[in-house]
Design a protein around this nucleic acid. Structure first.
Lengths: 199, 199
DNA sequence: ACTACGATGTACGCATCGTTCACATCGCGC
DNA sequence: GCGCGATGTGAACGATGCGTACATCGTAGT
């Protein structure tokens, strides 16, 4: 905590983000108050306003960070997926991320997300583009646009259903099996999709 | 507003629910405060506490009502879907519902949803069972459990992605085409699923 | 007919929150 | 040195969730 002085913090912006992340993981979205963030950063209640216009801006920043981490996490699962199996691995990583960071994942997707935050739209576009590129290499003949949103939707829906306890998330294996099965169900249709694109 | 007296409201419970629904559609989830609900019902700020333990309980009640309406809406789209096309119609209705009642839909799914609310889990179980029954009649040979959660996840994900503006929701036709296409992509795999179940 | 009681609302208070505004304090460029 | 812009402080306002004590009603039992 490189504090430049007793008065000035040094890097309040980053400290707020870190505090916000921690509060999110600890107390859920409800616990994320600007005042609590300020408290945790050891700073007055109004100091964060120097760096974030309002609570929404802070949440957006946290969400954007979450998007970046998600992207890293997916890339970590498999750098260059090019088969349905490898794609399934990435899908499992997506759902795992949601289950490992439930409050963060909800903050990323479960809020109105005013489109004004460019940081946010850029990050989500990156995710979409990433999925698109995977689909392109995995199914060169298919309609990449349509198929990528379809697979994204499938995985995204699985993540939310798991988060809401609608699906069996008791063991990592159960989740893996569920997600892998669902992805394969979709990809067994790839020949049909491919021919449809050629038609 | 059958008010039994100037003092007693008559049916505050129902009035609160109605007010909450209205506030949700008008101001989004953030605008849903117990005090605002009380105000709209023309009653003191703490009166609703007689009927709902806390804010969370009210939201749960609204969400449960939302689940019931969703079920009705789906049934209205097609009473007894038994082909992929008819199932796609129901899927479109699902996404439409989300887009027509964004705040309500988010309240239904985008919150931690403590599993203590039986009203809520019962309602969501009903939805899941409904999907399951459709899948069973549409694909008698398939693994109904696996396939139904897969299709639910697909549609659910599409709904959220549309809600978040990640997909083109500019015209109803675009939404319909998107959802129909995705569902068909999944169902073209049904023979594979069926054989897998038999294996 | 009266009365006691349980259900329903009200009045009031407390802690917290988001946000604003005037002011204090620091570091850096002149 | 020193002045100015960036950064952080403090008090304050209105709104919120929620708890507690009290008021008011319909009604059942006498």
């Amino acid at each position: 905590m490189a504090r430049t002085s007793a008065y000035h913090h040094g890097d309040l912006r980053a400290a707020c983000l870190r505090a916000a992340r921690e509060l999110l993981e600890e107390d859920g979205s409800a616990g994320l108050s600007l005042r609590a963030v300020a408290r945790r950063a050891g700073v007055s209640a109004t100091a964060p306003y120097r760096h974030y216009a309002d609570r929404e801006a802070l949440v957006s920043a946290v969400a954007a960070e979450g998007y970046r981490e998600l992207a890293e996490h997916l890339a970590g699962a498999h750098p260059t997926p090019s088969t349905p199996d490898e794609l399934a691995t990435v899908a499992v990583a997506y759902v795992r991320f949601a289950l490992d960071h439930p409050a963060l994942f909800r903050a990323m997707f479960a809020e109105p997300c005013d489109p004004a935050s460019e940081e946010r739209v850029a990050a989500t576009n990156a995710i979409h583009e990433y999925v698109r590129s995977i689909v392109r290499t995995t199914f060169p003949g298919a309609d990449a646009e349509a198929l990528s949103t379809t697979v994204w939707a499938l995985v995204h829906g699985l993540a939310f259903l798991h988060l809401d306890g609608k699906l069996d998330s008791s063991t990592p294996e159960a989740v893996t099996a569920q997600v892998t099965g669902a992805v394969h169900a979709l990809f067994d249709a790839s020949p049909a999709l491919t021919s449809a694109a050629r038609r």
